[in-house]
């Protein structure tokens, strides 16, 4: 290990929280999705760090799966973004509040 594991964890946690802050703070659906991407990326960083720590390849393989899942998620969610935009001609998250009880 070139750096202590705790430093990797700190970096990835910071990135994760940044992503989460983006998700919470931004109202634009595209920005929300970008925040999700950041969070996923942070998780990937943790996994690679763990892989290096325990010298096992499995962590990296999980990152591969993570990427595949992310691609799937992104394709679906972007399709939804297109659909929603077509319905309301806006991407403000608050515009879609039909689930209000």
């Amino acid at each position: 290990m070139i750096v202590p594991m705790s430093h990797i964890l700190a970096i990835s946690a910071t990135m994760f929280l940044m992503g989460f802050a983006c998700v919470l703070a931004q109202r634009n659906l595209i920005m929300v999705l970008i925040g999700v991407e950041i969070m996923l990326n942070a998780v990937g960083l943790t996994l690679v760090g763990a892989s290096a720590l325990w010298e096992q390849v499995d962590g990296q393989i999980f990152v591969i799966f993570l990427m595949a899942m992310t691609s799937a998620e992104v394709s679906i969610s972007l399709a939804l973004v297109v659909y929603l935009n077509r319905r309301k001609h806006t991407l403000e998250a608050d515009a879609f509040s039909e689930m209000k009880g």
Binding site: A93, D94, M99, G101
Partner: peptide, 18 residues
């Protein structure tokens, strides 16, 4: 009372998750 919790706004839910 509880239905006020379901605002239908994405960010409320995400905040609750947080």
């Amino acid at each position: 009372g509880l239905r006020r919790l379901t605002t239908g706004r994405l960010h409320n839910y995400l905040t609750a998750l947080g």
